[in-house]
Amino acid sequence: MNSWIDLDALWHIVAVGLLAGAGLPAVFALGLRAVSLPGRGGAPDAETTPDARTTPGADRIIGTNPIGIAAGALCFAIVLAGIAWGIYSVVAGT
């Protein structure tokens, strides 16, 4: 810590920045993965089917797995909460 650079703030910016700036997109990606999960015996698995892109059902945006959709919704809720916190921190101006 010295007068030129505030290492404490720097450390916080990097740590919280990684959590919010890289973590939230990762949670968002997890959410997308969850909502697109196929149900039992439903749409073919994109990983194992080479031509998944052209298979009917692959262009569906939401999969058919209820647990997946619920988990995805939870992920998106976390992302939205993170954004709300960000906007709040601006408005509070602290």
């Binding site: 968002f28 993965r33 909502v35 999969g63």
Partner: peptide, 12 residues
């Protein structure tokens, strides 16, 4: 993001 979304169908 790329690692976690690699199995997600293109449409989604």
């Amino acid at each position: 993001v790329y690692r976690l979304s690699r199995n997600v169908p293109d449409g989604t």
